[in-house]
């Protein structure tokens, strides 16, 4: 197999890698905020249950969570295993990343000075307005570097989808490597991930820069 054929075959899988990446971000970023708010809830039960769930999600390998989401419903309740593996993959990734994002959000929100809340309260902003207009924009700026870290990790984590037989780029690479008894596909995969992350880095850098107009 020529290098070009190899690259083209793996590039086909790249669209599935992108699907995991973008859908996971689409769902986990807002979900993480909900989880963060539950985690900071004044209701002790809500906050400690959320805390426990977060620690389970962060304390077990994503690979196991993928298996649990994909095959768990079948073993536990006899629900058919999904033919479209993108669904369980995105669910598992979104839940897992939401847990990480939630802790980042919480750190950001808790680092905000009390004075910002007080100034907003005295000026008559409602709690929602205060959060959305005053707190959140500053939190986002503050947590951007940590978010970028997670996003870069996500790019690489997409390769875990092979554990549930989702034919993304890395799975295809492994297949080719195997049938050709060759290491080249892994090198190609490495280059793909590196380029993908270079683009992500560039985009995140732009976003960070756009918020550098204030300190």
């Amino acid at each position: 197999m020529s290098l070009l054929t190899m690259i083209l075959k793996m590039a086909e899988g790249l669209s599935k890698t992108c699907a995991i990446f973008f859908l996971t971000l689409l769902f986990s970023l807002p979900l993480g905020m909900i989880v963060a708010l539950l985690r900071m809830s004044k209701d002790k039960v809500v906050s400690s249950v959320t805390r426990f769930v977060i620690s389970v999600l962060r304390g077990t390998p994503l690979m196991l969570q993928l298996l649990a989401v994909t095959y768990g419903p079948y073993y536990l309740f006899g629900i058919s295993v999904s033919r479209n593996k993108l669904i369980p993959v995105v669910i598992a990734f979104s839940i897992n990343y939401a847990a990480y994002f939630a802790e980042i959000y919480r750190g950001g929100i808790e680092s905000m000075a009390k004075g910002q809340y007080e100034a907003a309260a005295v000026l008559g902003y409602t709690k929602t307005q205060t959060f959305l207009k005053i707190i959140l924009p500053q939190v986002i700026k503050r947590i951007m570097p940590s978010i970028t870290n997670e996003v870069v990790t996500l790019v690489k984590d997409t390769s875990l989808a092979f554990t549930v037989s989702y034919q993304e780029m890395f799975t295809i690479g492994k297949q080719i490597a195997n049938s050709q008894t060759s290491f080249t596909p892994f090198v190609v995969a490495g280059v793909f991930y590196f380029v993908f992350n270079a683009i992500v880095d560039f985009g995140m850098g732009k976003i960070e820069k756009s918020m550098q107009y204030y300190k």
């Binding site: 000075a113 004075g115 910002q116 100034a119 008559g124 005053i134 500053q138």
Partner: peptide, 21 residues
């Protein structure tokens, strides 16, 4: 009704507490 009440007064803080963004 507190929203209206809050327009009766203003408060200037020791630490200014301006919105940096």
């Amino acid at each position: 009704e507190m929203v209206k009440v809050k327009s009766y007064f203003g408060l200037v803080f020791q630490q200014f507490n301006l919105f940096p963004h």
